[in-house]
Amino acid sequence: MRLRLSVELLGFVALTAIVAELPRFVGDYRARELAIVGMYFIALLGLSILTGYSGQISLGHGAFMAIGGYTTAILTVNGFYGHPVRDLWTIPIAGVVAGIAGLLVGVPALRLSGLYLALITFGIAVSFPQLPKKFDHFLGGTTGKILNLAKPPYGLDTTTNDWIYYLTWGIALVLLLCAWLLVRGKTGRALKAIRDSEVAAASSGISLARYKTLAFGISAFYAGIAGSLYAIANAYVNPDVFPIILSVYLVVGLAVGGLDSLPGLIAGAALIYFLQNHADTVAKWLNHLPALSLDPKQPGISSVVFGAVLIVVMLLVPTGVGGLLRRVLHPLTTRLYTRS
């Protein structure tokens, strides 16, 4: 096990190095794109703790992101008792607010199993966009709220996009570390035990209520942070910034990344971003296949590509990228381990 620990630490250091150096090799716009991938990654980390480790399905994590995003928007625009809060400080607050919302959902979720939970959380995802419309004085209705453009802190000589990139990935790495410590510790074992058999876990003295609710809270906290960053990067929030389908995309990213593989989630996050914004590129690639002529600009093409990729990935590699990684790495590490 010590070997595995060092492999994982080494991986983390390598990832940090890549994250730090990457902006030097890519353009300003790419840095912004990568930052958004980082936000999805953060949300996926949370979802992985919930679904991958504690076995609870949520189809409503887009709503928690929205809560984070709206928290940041309200605090920076309306302010706290009239005092606008600097965007940076709203990030943890957004996480906490979303986390509390998560705990609140987690309590009834205790009594719902599997698909019932999926349906109820999906309902939350669908219901949430109605709230800004209903309470439009406060939440800005369909037009939403405009935030100030994000600026690098005084004295830091970078572009806004680079700043957002470093901010996002800095937070992402810290949260990755936290998630990793969480899942390999006592809590992680408890969660996995619950996922594999609730009855067995309960009879070993694990408090189902405590850990399942906790998983919901933590997971929503992550989503809230991601939503807050997303709001800052976009400089506005409205119901369309966090569409219903976002929740679906997150689950998709989770499945593609591998349910309980933290590093695999980066691939999932990249896929979410790429397919949402570059489905036309995929359509162009596909046109190289014989007998296909897709019009990349046609509406609907992105859904078709997204859906098709999703189905194919699930049929071919049901364990996701993480599972694939593990299958490649596992024999390697065990061999090393048994020799040493």
């Binding site: 399905i57 679906v248 689950v251 499945a255 609907g300 859906g307």
Partner: peptide, 21 residues
């Protein structure tokens, strides 16, 4: 279950896009 749920979600997206096209 999650795998199958995701496949049906993928199917929903696929069909929705096909209808637009």
């Amino acid at each position: 279950v999650l795998t199958i749920v995701i496949i049906t979600l993928g199917l929903a997206l696929l069909l929705n896009g096909l209808m637009s096209i």
